[in-house]
Write a protein that binds this DNA or RNA. Structure first.
Lengths: 218, 218
DNA sequence: ACAAATTTTTAGGCAAGGCTAAGTTTGTGT
DNA sequence: ACACAAACTTAGCCTTGCCTAAAAATTTGT
């Protein structure tokens, strides 16, 4: 598997998660900042290698083999992210691009040992689940903060958007994984929320709330 | 810098260390398991980028800039080797090929933090010196075991050949860095040695002795 | 249902990095 | 000194992965 093939597979997996069905050429191209014609080329190659199901004009989906490959790459990416944060004191907005490089290192032993060094973590620094060696992972049951009823609250367990700018915003506002967030008020007009974190309260926009996952206390 | 360019630079540096002068196209090709014609192509490109001095038919040598690049890659390679051995319990014969991949990861922050995590090591698992951020490094004063006088001895500080087969041989014979080795006898006929390690003695060939570095006790 | 808009594919090219085969240049032996 | 071997370069071609422009298929609007 070349680096490029791995990146395509990973992208197809990520897009596929949102909408289940066949993934469009255009969406892949957009996500990867490349052109649709390049996608077509690569998709044919992946199809020849039995990594994707592909029929002209009908979009693409991962085969079982392709899914396995995708989960392998994602496992590596997320383990490296944990390493960067836990062992090298990177902040959660700095890890992505380095992990994009590290995820392509080929060595099973390396990744198994890394897993051990990190104590077999189940989630990465953004709260996303880390697949195990066989591709299995536990998706936490979580809710977007924007969908939590007024008066309710939960522990922050993840972010939907993990762009550096969003993560930096959260840092600035002392919002971090593991923190308890309570929804105190919700403004009908724009969907903005007043939330309580620890002893203080804040006003956050709907956009922010729609990118924060919390786990509701049962 | 592409991965390939970095590999050429690194190879030119390593060959240049042995013989000082301009490095031949053929020796680069041989070392890199590629063809001389490919080397010529790449060398031209490196010359355009001011990384090497090159005149047709006259061999090639690194410029100051090229040397800096080489030391940077070597620093990364050796730090990763230390990481693999110290943190992930790789043995010293397993680290090379993984480090070959890791050395091309681009992130200054990553490498500085890795250096810190490992406590600023000065030598890699084979006893080779690790350049610091500015490219400076301390070459230990050491001697090949084959050049040590009978009756003398020293602490094993490095290997000249770091191929997996040689390193495994050393493991099998309980020879490791840090161990005190004494030359007890030397066979004139084939240059083989009888050496003492700890409480036991062993017979080793000249070939082995000529690939082991020791530091003579002053 | 059918023309227009959109999406996707094909055709043809480009740069990187490699190869083989065919020249050049340099070095060597006598 | 000069012929020949060895070393090196050039020329031309290949694959990967990407691009633009143009053609084909699909979807959409009415």
């Amino acid at each position: 598997m070349t680096r490029s093939e791995e990146n395509y597979i990973k992208t197809i997996f990520h897009i596929g998660r949102q909408g289940q069905e066949a993934v469009s050429t255009n969406s892949i191209a957009e996500q990867m900042e490349t052109k649709p014609s390049s996608v077509t080329d690569m998709v044919k190659k992946l199809s020849d290698k039995n990594l994707v199901n592909y029929k002209r004009y009908q979009g693409v989906s991962l085969t079982d083999l392709g899914t396995k490959v995708a989960l392998g790459v994602i496992r590596k990416h997320r383990l490296w992210e944990v390493f960067l944060v836990e062992k090298l004191d990177f902040s959660w907005d700095e890890v992505h691009e380095v992990a994009e490089q590290l995820e392509h290192i080929k060595s099973d032993k390396l990744i198994d040992r890394l897993d051990r060094l990190l104590n077999y973590p189940k989630y990465d620094p953004h709260g996303d689940p880390i697949p195990d060696k066989d591709g299995g992972f536990e998706e936490r049951d979580k809710k977007l903060l924007s969908e939590v009823a007024v008066g309710e609250g939960g522990v922050c367990v993840g972010v939907k958007d993990s762009s550096a700018s969003f993560l930096k915003f959260l840092d600035k506002n002392n919002i971090a994984l593991g923190q308890f967030i309570q929804v105190l008020e919700m403004e009908e007009f724009d969907g903005s929320l007043v939330i309580g974190i620890g002893d203080s309260t804040r006003q956050i926009s709907h956009q922010i709330a729609a990118n924060l996952y919390v786990k509701i206390k049962e």
